[in-house]
Design a protein around this nucleic acid. Structure first.
Length: 292
DNA sequence: GTCCATGTTCTTTA
DNA sequence: CTAAAGAACATGGA
């Protein structure tokens, strides 16, 4: 479930519970989820205190009391949950949850790759069935590598410069983390609809007016999504889980065939950059002579 | 069995 | 050479 709003929600919830705590035990069950592969990650973080938790794009950045850092990326199916060390009972969780309504939820999933035990009786579990996510040791390196600016603090001018460099479809450009960092498939589609821009429009052919509109649409969409604690799509959440609610407010994502909430025209779905792309053919007119 | 999935990176193609 | 498209990664749900 992780695009910028979901990661932002996770970090905001987790921060006040784990910042200031010391990592007393590191149970790394799969070494291959750590990059680079040759670092002794448990040794590097054991007995260190977490002094800050922050978000950069879709990365969850842990700062330790020696000034060194690492980040967790949730990929497609990653999840962090906070549990009570003694009982193993979930204290808090956020991320994609597997269907488990009938059986009693097993305390430990086979996809739990790391458990950090913290002082004060808490454990942070990192689970990720598909393992597209991972743990990235930074040390003293910057977490900025290969990342474009944050969309929430982006000026229309910055956006214009970055989009002007490519003729790719605007939808593909919005997914490129080197251009703008934090949008994913849901919020790219939702932002384009809010800005009334066709996803196939070449990025460098957007007019200044369209750029300004898109910049506002991205911010508005992300802010609303954060306010609703992100989107929970394609995964089940029980009453205790604190899944997001923004999926109820999606206007195009996953709504192919259903009427546009603005004009009633059926929402279309195409595949672009290998990703599902939903848009309203009426609200988001395809520019003349744009073809792929 | 088939298709699809909130992401990123490597490889192939044009 | 570069930009863009496509495949690959791994698992599970519908």
């Amino acid at each position: 479930m992780p695009e910028l709003p979901e990661v932002q929600t996770i970090v905001a919830d987790l921060a006040d519970r784990i910042v200031g705590r010391t990592i007393t035990r590191v149970d790394l069950r799969r070494r291959d989820i750590v990059t680079p592969r040759d670092v002794d990650f448990p040794k590097l973080i054991r007995r260190r205190r977490i002094t800050a938790l922050s978000r950069r794009a879709k990365r969850i950045i842990f700062t330790l009391d020696d000034g060194r850092r690492f980040y967790i990326h949730l990929g497609m199916s990653g999840r962090l949950s906070l549990r009570d060390s003694g009982s193993g009972i979930r204290v808090w969780e956020k991320g994609t949850a597997p269907l488990s309504e009938t059986r009693t939820p097993e305390p430990e999933s086979r996809h739990t790759h790391m458990i950090l035990t913290l002082d004060g009786g808490l454990q942070l579990h990192f689970t990720d069935p598909r393992r597209f996510g991972g743990i990235f040791w930074l040390g003293t390196e910057s977490p900025e590598k290969d990342l474009g600016p944050e969309p929430l603090s982006l000026t229309a001018r910055q956006l214009a410069v970055r989009l002007g460099k490519t003729a790719r479809p605007i939808k593909s450009a919005l997914l490129d983390q080197r251009l703008i960092a934090g949008l994913g498939n849901i919020y790219a589609d939702e932002s384009l609809h809010a800005a009334a821009i066709h996803p196939l429009t070449p990025a460098n052919r957007l007019t200044p007016q369209q750029i300004a509109r898109l910049n506002r649409a991205i911010k508005t969409t992300l802010r609303r999504a954060i306010h609703h604690r992100g989107s929970s799509v394609r995964n089940y959440r029980d009453g205790d889980g604190r899944g997001g609610h923004f999926q109820k407010l999606h206007r195009v994502y996953g709504r192919q065939g259903q009427p546009c909430l603005t004009c009633g025209t059926p929402i279309e779905r195409i595949v672009l950059s290998g990703r599902s792309t939903c848009f309203c053919p009426q609200c988001q007119k395809r520019p003349r002579a744009s073809r792929r």
